[in-house]
Each structure stands twice: as structure tokens, then as C-alpha cells.
Design a protein around this nucleic acid. Structure first.
Length: 347
DNA sequence: ATATGGATCCGCCAAT
DNA sequence: CAATTGGCGGATCCAT
């Protein structure tokens, strides 16, 4: 007996501010650009919609609008034709998420002035702006990135730095967030970034199900195994806080709590927690918890270390404590998690 | 599965 | 005076 099996979303966290609101997403289709850069991120959001609806939460999700810089054919190849016919000028009102796919930097001359100023204006009434690949050029040209951190496709990094010395370009991470501007390195990293948006909006559980449903693995190639994608995006600028974060990641097994970190940073616990939360976006206690969880997930996925040893190494008091933490965040236990996501699992 | 003790978080106020 | 820092207490979260 086969049946279409949809991952069930167990827990959608309650949101204090805008519970039940659907989020308005505007994505720009740019003729001549790589279609995956647009369709990929949009598809992730559509999958989130689908899974939320399946779980009886059709009141959540994304209302997605595709607009274009030039109505007409966006992409054409051997019989496949992609058409977008809504001009960007017709967008009215506030936007939750604005997605800017790649645009050839050489196109960003005077003839695109209208589009660029539209981006600049629209960004003001947009909660967050997302660029994919060299879409980051558009944001930079529109003046949104001055003094901010950002990333773009590796092949363009040198060129980008020359053109926009005011932007703190970070070539390493596959995506970067600075306040409400998110930029990604391109192609599949746009998918990772989109997944991170889903996580931010609807919680880890939903993001995990979307990843699972899209057959994406929440795992990056070995070269950057130290910090996970989510953690990487969360490292603070301020050196004292950043030190504390690195301390946590390096000494997971012996980190005790906020008090220890505050002492390490030579601040009072109260002030340390306050500054930490402001710089990082999450509280120190939560950061420690997420770091433990991330590391545990890595070890479960990529090693065959026994579960009890994983728990110890990640700083959990016991395997039982780890189990509860897994259940809380991922709605599954370590054993099941490893079975499902282990790279060595043959299924 | 639930109860309990401890840690954490956050608002508020005082001190710098 | 504005901004940063530290301390206190209650509500909440978490581990045992």
C-alpha cells in the first residue's frame, strides 16, 4: 500500500506580534538572468505554504507576487518559456519580503535608474530585503548596503569590493544577514537562505519539514563544518560578544551558563545578557542551547559516535536531556534523527 | 507523567 | 540630559 505521505508539522510557534498573518512576498523576475535564482527561493516558500496548509494552518504562509523589470519573456530555452507580465511599478503598499535575483552589473547603468530608485523606495516599506547571487549588486547600487555586511557569488567578490568599498563584503558565508538585509552567494545558497527565512517566520519545525519535503539536507559540505549555516549568520560584530560566541562553540562540553560567559567578557551578567541579545538577536541561554543542538545534529548526521557520547560532547547533562531538547526543537528524538539524516544510512 | 529547585530572561529603577 | 551599566524581583523555562 502506497500513499502520498506529507510531513506533519507538529508545532508552529505562536507569534506575539502578527499571529495568523500571511506574509506578502514580492519577487522580481529579471529577463536574462538564471531562472533557478528566482524559481528556487520562490519554490521553497511555496513548499512552506503547502505544508502549512496541509497542517491546517492556511492562515499562515506567504502571498507571493512576481513582478518584472520588463514585462514579457523572462527566460526561454529550447521550448521552455517563462513569461512575467506584471511591471514592478504596479506594486502598492507594504511588503514583507522583497526578493531580488541576480542582474548583470553592467546593466545597472542609467537605463535602470527607475528600477533602482524603486528598490530604494520599496525597501523602506519592506520588512526585509533579500538578494540572491549578484542581485546583491542591485541592493548596493540602490544604496541599501552602505556600511552593512553582505555577500555575493564568489566569482564576483573582487569586482564587488572595488565597486562598493563602503560595503563590508564577506566572501566566506553562503549567506549573510545584516539587520533587515539578507544576501546569499547564489544558486543553491539562495535555497538555504530561503529556508532560513522560513525558519525565522514559522519556526524550526516547519523549516525542517520543508527541507525534508524538498529533499534538502540541512547540512553543508565539509569545508565549513565548524559553524552551521544558521549559526554563521548569527555571529556578532562586537568583539567581546563574538568572543563569547566562539568560546561557546569551542567549549560546548564545559560551558555552564550565562554567568560564566559574562565573567569571560568582563561584564555583569545582566548587562552581558542585554548586549548579547541586542547584538546577536537571541539570548545567551538560547544561543548555548541552539549551539548544543546544532553540534549534536552534526555529530548524529556525520559520525557514528554513540548517542550518549554525543550528548556528553555537546554539553548535555545526560542523553535524556538531549532527547528532550531534540523533541522540543525538532519533534523527534536523536535516534530517529540519525536514522533519517545520517549520511551513512542506507535506506 | 508530574513536581520541584534552579537558571534564565526581562522590565524596572538606580547609579554612573 | 542621554546613554550605558548594574542590581533586584517576578514570571517563565528547563533539568532532574
Amino acid at each position: 500500500m502506497t500513499e502520498f505521505c506529507t510531513p506533519r508539522i507538529a508545532a508552529v510557534p505562536a507569534f506575539a506580534d502578527d499571529a495568523g498573518k500571511r506574509r506578502r512576498v514580492v519577487a522580481v523576475a529579471i529577463p536574462g538572468s538564471e531562472p533557478l535564482e528566482l524559481i528556487g527561493p520562490v519554490d521553497i516558500l511555496m513548499n512552506a505554504n503547502f505544508l502549512l496548509a496541509q497542517s491546517g494552518r492556511a492562515d499562515l504562509g506567504y502571498d507571493i507576487e512576481i513582478v518584472t523589470t520588463a514585462p514579457g519573456v523572462v527566460f526561454e530555452y529550447n521550448g521552455l518559456r517563462l513569461v512575467a507580465d506584471t511591471p514592478f511599478e504596479s506594486v502598492r503598499g507594504d511588503v514583507d519580503t522583497l526578493i531580488v535575483p541576480p542582474m548583470d552589473p553592467d546593466e545597472l547603468g542609467p537605463n535602470q535608474q527607475g528600477f533602482l530608485s524603486w528598490i530604494a523606495r520599496t525597501a523602506k516599506r519592506t520588512r526585509r530585503v533579500v538578494s540572491i547571487c549578484i542581485g546583491t549588486y542591485v541592493l548596493a547600487e540602490a544604496g541599501l548596503l552602505d556600511g552593512k555586511r553582505a555577500t555575493t557569488h564568489w566569482a564576483w567578490c573582487d569586482d564587488f569590493k572595488k565597486r562598493y568599498p563602503n560595503v563590508h563584503l564577506q566572501p566566506e558565508p553562503i549567506y549573510v544577514r545584516d539587520q533587515n538585509i539578507y544576501s546569499s552567494a547564489g544558486a543553491t545558497s539562495g535555497l538555504d537562505l530561503s529556508l532560513a527565512l522560513v525558519e525565522e517566520d514559522f519556526g524550526r519545525d516547519v523549516a525542517l519539514r520543508v527541507a525534508q519535503f524538498s529533499v534538502m539536507y540541512l547540512k553543508r559540505p565539509g569545508s565549513q563544518a565548524q559553524f552551521s549555516v544558521q549559526m554563521e549568520a548569527q555571529l556578532a560584530d562586537k568583539s567581546a560578544i563574538r568572543k563569547a560566541q566562539e568560546f561557546v562553540l569551542e567549549h560546548l562540553a564545559i560551558v555552564t551558563g550565562v554567568e560564566q560567559l559574562a565573567e569571560e567578557a568582563a561584564m555583569s551578567p545582566r548587562n552581558f545578557a542585554r548586549v548579547f541579545t541586542r547584538e546577536v538577536g537571541i539570548s545567551p541561554g538560547r544561543f548555548i542551547e541552539l549551539s548544543r543542538l546544532e553540534r549534536a545534529r552534526q555529530l548524529l548526521e556525520q559520525s557514528t559516535i554513540p548517542i550518549a557520547a554525543v550528548a556528553k560532547r555537546c554539553g548535555y547533562g545526560s542523553a535524556d536531556a538531549m532527547r528532550i531538547a531534540f523533541d522540543r526543537h525538532l519533534n523527534t528524538g536523536p535516534r530517529e534523527y540519525r536514522r533519517r539524516f545520517s549520511s551513512s544510512a542506507a535506506s
